[in-house]
Design a binder for these strands. Structure first.
Ligand SMILES: Nc1ncnc2c1ncn2[C@@H]1O[C@H](COP(=O)(O)OP(=O)(O)OP(=O)(O)O)[C@@H](O)[C@H]1O
Length: 671
DNA sequence: CAAGCTCTTCAGACA
DNA sequence: GAAGAGCTTG
């Protein structure tokens, strides 16, 4: 096998297939390439069966990319290699074994909204809502943090001196009970329950320990403790583990990523080999130098070298607008000019931002400028009310116990099952210890439920059962169409008295959902409703099948950009408060934000442009903004036009005028 | 009990 | 700019 496109250290990492190794290296040093080549080496040289190889990535997008790169490399022989995220691996195992843990295999996955509505419900039931000590969001956060560290309600209940903590503990306990009752698990449970399988049903899991002879983990710096433990179980038997990561790119601390996983690797795997990669093949020295200046302000970094042999490259660009609209217009024009001048494709460009809400204006601006674009990773689609409502029908059909979804739809669109009827139904649930759906099925037998409502409940339940049948037999997409027509969801949306534009949008989203299901069926004719639901829960919108990736500018958050690269990168919104994000600063200091900046900058291969607006609209009022602190860490000589300006006002104005004149001149020349 | 209205609150990243 | 809460009205 040809290893000439790897450097010495990479080759070492690729060919040291036995035992644990840790590849610790900076951005763009070819870590991902190591994983790809290693898999290729295992299959081609060591004749390892693909099914014995497991590579874990952090996002589905990364998994798919790796799949593509492997396909290019192995042309079919990669078939059978398992590439997945910890979460999808977990779901796969749970499907098979979750009954051991007291759930049924048709479990559903609760997202943040579902979780919070459960928590709200519990707090209402226990009159904890206006205790002033806790709120649903806070409890949700605490539960999440605890779960990421592998802790349960006891962790809170033990802290007797804090009423707040004990209340959180009570809600937490109840929360787990409710979820179990709904046969639902949350994202953290996916990992926790999988781990529990390994710990408590160890023998049943033995085949799994046996299965993967070679385990690889990309973006290792972002794993949390639970994932780490899971990883240990998976490679326990064979011990052939290769993890690659970069402590400077650890940007998921808020989700429990634990840097100890890197620090303790040597302790937990004493025979581990540590390999460092020091050459960056991605960016120009200019970009790399700037990125290093930003990250070097962080204390307590692991020592790492990173150099690039590429030609120096062009200086960094800086764009400043009077407000966000102007900032983004300038960015758009810049892209337009460059595409024309250099004959580049739009797909060579990425616009990266800190927070999702920034994407709206970017999108509008690009649309107005006629620049084609695609947005990656926005979760908002599946969080929209109308989409969630439609999905709730599917979830209830799949799992009658899913009471969060059931409550969403039992009276939407209206079918005369009001609040009081539900309270009565609920009373019978508790009295007879039956799930709500069972009560609905025979609502007329329960005298306290008003007759009208009871009839309605029964026919609702019958309808669900009818569609459950149909989903098992007919094409998913068609049944969904019938279902939504039957319950009148689209009709309800269309007859709402709101402005026609939003109305159109909402209907459009539901249509898109139906098209998505059609596409899913086309691509996976054998799969069932449960597969679709699983996909929808795990794969956010990222997965839009890369429709014609060609010639579109990519828009995404800095977080989703990790691991990717583009010839031209624009980092927009480089203003204090936005990036670094204020809340993040307050809660966890600037270091992670700084790493995020490092990640963003090092996505660029040839040219990096940063931009900000001097004023920004926030809700109603306008606020003036100052330049992001990260910019002042970059040597101004690396910029073509230095941001903020160390020059006096006169010069500054002049330069601005000058560059604007240049700019318009260029525009004219191009037209 | 439903419908329509205003008011408030919220916008940190992801699986 | 969107969604939920809470109010009034029919
Ligand atoms: N030995 C090599 N020779 C030439 N190019 C290489 C070599 N190794 C990697 N590259 C290229 O360098 C770029 C970065 O590689 P890769 O994505 O594997 O880096 P990485 O370390 O995973 O980056 P990051 O940490 O930013 O995710 C890719 O375009 C890759 O093709």
């Amino acid at each position: 096998m040809d290893l000439s496109h790897l450097n010495h250290q990479q080759r070492q990492a690729v060919t040291s297939t036995k035992g644990p190794i840790l590849v610790l290296a900076g951005a763009g040093s070819g870590k991902t390439r190591v994983i790809i080549q290693r898999i290729s080496w295992l299959i081609q040289v060591e004749q390892v069966l693909p099914a014995e190889i497991l590579a874990v990535t952090f996002t589905n997008k990364a998994a798919r990319e790796m799949q593509e790169r492997l396909k290019d490399e192995l042309r079919g022989r990669q078939k059978g290699v398992q590439l997945s995220t910890f979460h999808s691996l977990g779901v796969q195992l749970l499907r098979e074994h979750i009954d051991q843990l007291g759930y049924r295999s048709n479990f559903v996955i609760y997202d943040t909204q579902d979780q919070q509505s459960v928590i709200k419900g519990i707090m209402e039931d226990h009159d904890l809502e206006d205790s002033g000590l806790i709120d649903a969001k806070g409890v949700h956060y605490e539960i999440g943090q605890a779960k990421n560290r592998g802790l349960g309600p006891d962790h809170f209940l033990q802290q007797r001196d804090s009423t707040r903590k004990t209340q959180v503990g009570q809600v937490f306990t109840e929360y787990q009970r409710v979820l179990k009752g709904c046969n639902a698990i949350d994202f953290d449970d996916i990992l926790l329950l999988t781990l529990k399988l390994f710990e408590e049903y160890s023998e049943a899991m033995d085949p799994l320990r046996e299965r993967y002879h070679y385990l690889m983990v990309d973006e290792y710096q972002d794993t949390n403790r639970v994932q780490y433990q899971l990883m240990c179980h998976l490679c326990q038997r064979h011990h052939n583990l290769c993890v690659v990561g970069d402590d400077d790119q650890s940007i998921y601390g808020w989700r429990g990523a634990d840097i100890r996983n890197i620090l303790d690797f040597e302790r937990d795997f004493p025979e581990a080999k540590i390999i460092r990669l020091e050459q960056n093949y991605r960016s120009t020295p200019t970009i790399l130098k700037a990125a290093n200046q930003v990250i070097s302000q962080n204390p307590q970094r692991m020592p790492k070298e990173l150099w690039s042999q590429k030609p120096t490259g062009v200086p960094l660009e800086w764009i400043e607008g009077k407000d966000e609209a102007e900032e983004l217009e300038l960015v758009a024009r810049q892209i337009k000019i460059q595409v024309l001048r250099h004959g580049r494709s739009h797909s060579d460009y990425a616009i990266l931002f800190r927070s999702n809400f920034q994407s709206r204006l970017i999108e509008e601006t690009l649309r107005d400028s006629g620049i084609p674009y695609q947005i990656i990773g926005s979760t908002s689609f599946y969080e929209r009310k109308e989409v969630k409502d439609a999905l709730a029908y599917l979830r209830v059909i799949h799992n009658h116990s899913d009471e969060v979804s059931l409550h969403r739809i039992i009276n939407y669109p209206r079918r005369g099952i009001g609040k009081t009827s539900l309270i009565q139904a609920n009373y019978y649930c508790q009295l007879l210890r039956k799930p709500l759906f069972e009560i609905c099925k025979q609502a007329r037998q329960h005298s306290r439920i008003p007759t009208e409502a009871a009839m309605s409940m029964e026919s609702f339940a019958q309808m669900i059962l009818r569609y459950q049948q149909r989903f098992q037999q007919e094409t998913l997409g068609e049944v969904l169409r019938d279902l939504l027509a039957d319950v009148g969801l689209i009709y309800d949306l269309e007859t709402q008295k709101i402005d026609p534009k939003t109305k159109e949008k909402r209907v459009g989203f539901v249509m898109e959902l139906m098209r998505g299901l059609d596409r899913f069926v086309e691509q996976n004719p054998e799969k069932h409703l449960r597969d679709y639901l699983e996909r929808v829960m795990l794969f956010t919108q990222n997965d839009r099948e890369e429709e014609l990736v060609s010639n579109q500018v990519t828009l995404m958050t800095l977080h989703s950009a990790k691991g990717l690269e583009f010839p031209f990168v624009f980092l927009v919104g480089m203003a204090e408060g936005v990036f670094p994000n204020q809340r993040s600063l307050d809660e966890s200091g600037e270091e992670e934000e700084r790493r995020l900046c490092y990640v963003g900058m090092t996505r660029a291969r040839e040219e990096l442009t940063m931009s900000m607006a001097r004023r920004r609209k926030r809700y109603r009022e306008e606020v003036s903004q100052t330049m992001s602190r990260f910019l002042s860490d970059i040597d101004s000589s690396l910029f073509k036009v230095a941001p903020g300006a160390k020059m006096d006002m006169g010069q500054k104005a002049l330069q601005k005028k000058q560059s604007r004149a240049d700019f318009f001149q260029q525009l004219r020349r191009l037209q």
